[in-house]
């Protein structure tokens, strides 16, 4: 990392949700280890993609960073300031700089408020009066996100799903944030916003093909841990973690008869439960390279041999570059031991 302070610095971030059970006194009987020791940084005007399958903890991470959830352990620094357990009052100025775009555009817009009121909401709460009035600013924002400013007085139900997502984006932009956490964005609009307005983004998505268009750096998560993080070109061009490779090979592509054919790795089974994750490397139960060592020793997220600076991989047996240039066909991993 560069010597300047990153905009957002996350280290050892952990969130365990307690599971209550038993009768008559409900005790904690276990924990869902949703996020388990994440380290990453987001720099100014940079966009980091966070990719993983459902249940890997990527949405929880987004909610932890925006402090909608209280972290169990670890540290979140924003512009060098520790905000991990900051009080509501201390958090207020930070909250206007870190905005969130929610996954479900239906559930995150108040059906009884007009679009104008929804987008002006953040300005009202923070008592911000832009030059020319709030209404003018809202109309500007509507234009930025590609909606008709005439729609100012309409209600969310009058819009299609894609348009509602745009309303969510306009609301997130209302306070000129420095960082936007976007949970499963589906709109090409964000690509434009990021490039033109220079806002830092944390893109949370399950699709590596989508993230590639949005992010300069990409982190791949599996069962609450980052397994690989790298610059976009390194990650897609030289994936070192077996899981990253499997994920890349599973992306359906609208092309026929490619030469050379793309690598095909089919993972067996499902993601294990985060209540009782596998020991050692969490991916080992579905990995075709797993050995004894993988079961006993959790691989650290480090710059393994052959990686460029900033390309970190958590694997004892990273894939090598030679394999990448000679794609394997119909590689069937052995069933999980």
């Amino acid at each position: 990392m560069s010597s300047t302070t990153p905009l957002l610095d996350v280290s050892g971030l952990t969130k365990h949700f307690p599971i209550k059970g038993g009768f008559p006194i409900r005790r904690t009987v276990g924990h869902v280890q949703a996020v388990d020791g994440l380290d990453f940084q987001v720099n100014e005007s940079e966009s980091l993609g966070l990719v993983g399958e459902s249940g890997c903890g990527k949405s929880t991470t987004g909610r932890l960073i925006t402090r909608l959830l209280e972290p169990t352990a670890g540290k979140i620094s924003y512009q060098g300031k520790d905000i991990t357990h900051a009080s509501r009052k201390d958090l207020a100025p930070v909250r206007s700089e870190i905005q969130m775009i929610f996954q479900d555009p239906y559930a995150s817009l108040n059906p009884r408020h007009t679009v104008g009121k929804i987008i002006a909401g953040p300005m009202e709460i923070n008592d911000i009066n832009p030059a020319g009035g709030r209404e003018k600013r809202v109309r500007e924002l509507l234009e930025i996100v590609g909606l008709n400013p005439e729609h100012y007085n309409r209600f969310p139900h009058e819009f299609s799903g894609g348009q509602r997502q745009r309303i969510g984006v306009a609301r997130a932009l209302a306070l000129d944030p420095k960082l936007i956490v976007a949970d499963e964005p589906v709109s090409a609009l964000l690509q434009k916003v990021q490039q033109e307005l220079g806002i830092a983004f944390l893109f949370i998505a399950h699709d590596l093909a989508v993230v590639r268009h949005f992010s300069q750096r990409v982190a791949v998560m599996y069962l609450g841990k980052i397994v690989e993080i790298a610059d976009r070109d390194d990650l897609y061009g030289n994936p070192r973690h077996p899981y990253t490779r499997a994920l890349l090979s599973a992306v359906p592509e609208a092309t026929v008869d490619e030469t050379p054919p793309r690598e095909r790795i089919r993972l067996q089974g499902d993601v294990p439960s985060p209540i009782n994750p596998p020991s050692g490397c969490r991916f080992r139960t579905r990995c075709w390279k797993a050995t004894e060592k993988c079961a006993t020793e959790a691989p650290p997220l480090v710059q393994v041999e052959g990686n460029k600076p900033g390309h970190l991989t958590a694997c004892h047996y990273p894939e090598t570059a030679e394999v990448a240039s000679a794609p394997r066909l119909a590689k069937d991993p052995e069933p999980a031991a």
Binding site: S187, A188, Q191, L208, A209, R232, Y236, T255
Partner: peptide, 15 residues
């Protein structure tokens, strides 16, 4: 308009 692994990244998607 489809994001893909082969589409050049600097060319914006075309919805």
């Amino acid at each position: 308009s489809m994001p893909s692994l082969d589409h050049p990244v600097d060319v914006p998607l075309n919805p």
